[in-house]
């Protein structure tokens, strides 16, 4: 497994609260190739966000290891930039300053002031937010905030871009635009991306592989589905595409037949 770009080896996670131990993840192993787009899908409470946090280094795994380019991951860092579910922009900074905070920190030694400035604008343009650089997060829409969140993450030039349900809080139209934007960025920059989602269409449209999680507690990887659809992908053309529908059906069957979500499973 060690030849993968990003490797998860037998990752377990359990939380200890009081005297009771709650197993969240068990025996999660996964290899991700460079440039691959992976979606992790599962019902709520299956620990997919916990899994992302473990890759990000924000939460330590109880046992098991995460390797990135052969090195163990044990703390958060800009090489695994996260796009948070609720954008997490700092409201007292402008759009430009939010990205500048990341750029200034990551490229303090390697880029001059002018280069940093150009790099910030380049990343804002990448998500089509250059026009709003002097606005504060409170003054722009949810979709725009998430664009800036993506720009901030991209500006760190991460080895792996981690997206934690990035479009979950957005309306369907805005979500579609942002999905297209992410696909375009992925095509242009070839980033390795791991995205948490609970949207089947989103997973099939964006991913090279879909990792399907079983229900928690003690969730594990149930199946990994290859999505052999050529890129660039177009949501309208794909709507009737045979492979697309088959992939979609496979995910739906997994989620709603074999691992149907039972409320209050404990």
């Amino acid at each position: 497994m060690a030849q993968h770009y990003l490797t998860l080896e037998l990752v377990d996670k359990s939380f200890q609260r009081g005297g009771t131990k709650t197993e969240v993840l068990t025996q999660v192993s996964l290899g991700v190739a460079k440039g691959e787009f992976i979606s992790i899908i599962g019902h709520s409470g299956c620990g997919k966000s916990t899994l992302l946090n473990i890759i990000a280094g924000l939460t330590p795994a109880t046992s098991g290891v995460v390797f990135l380019e052969g090195k163990t991951v044990d703390a958060p860092g800009p090489d695994r930039a996260v796009v948070f579910q609720n954008h997490s922009l700092l409201p007292w900074l402008t759009v430009y300053e939010n990205v500048a905070l990341a750029v200034g920190k990551v490229f303090r030694r390697t880029k001059s002031r002018a280069e940093q400035h150009d790099w910030i604008l380049h990343n804002l343009d990448l998500v089509q937010m250059g026009h709003a650089r002097d606005k504060r997060p409170g003054e722009i829409s949810g979709g725009m905030k998430q664009r800036v969140g993506i720009a901030r993450a991209l500006s760190m030039e991460p080895k792996v871009l981690l997206l934690d349900e990035p479009f979950g809080a957005l309306d369907a139209l805005t979500r579609a635009h942002l999905q297209d934007a992410v696909m375009e960025i992925h095509a242009r920059l070839g980033n390795t991306m791991i995205m948490i989602t609970h949207d089947v269409d989103e997973a099939v449209l964006l991913s090279d592989r879909i990792v399907m999680m079983t229900n928690g507690p003690a969730a594990r990887i149930g199946e990994v589905l290859d999505v052999p659809i050529v890129r660039p992908r177009n949501r309208i053309e794909l709507a009737g595409d045979r492979t697309y529908l088959k992939c979609r059906e496979a995910v739906l069957k997994f989620l709603y037949e074999r691992h149907r979500f039972v409320e209050a499973a404990e």
């Binding site: 996260v82 948070f84 990551v106």
Partner: peptide, 27 residues
């Protein structure tokens, strides 16, 4: 927690966290 996570991903040191996150957030 979100702001703290941002700070951790960016690896802000103590001073940077104090000035850029803590003071404005608690202001």
């Amino acid at each position: 927690q979100d702001y703290q996570n941002v700070a951790r991903v960016l690896r802000l040191n103590g001073f940077e966290y104090f000035g850029r996150i803590m003071l404005p957030a608690a202001a």
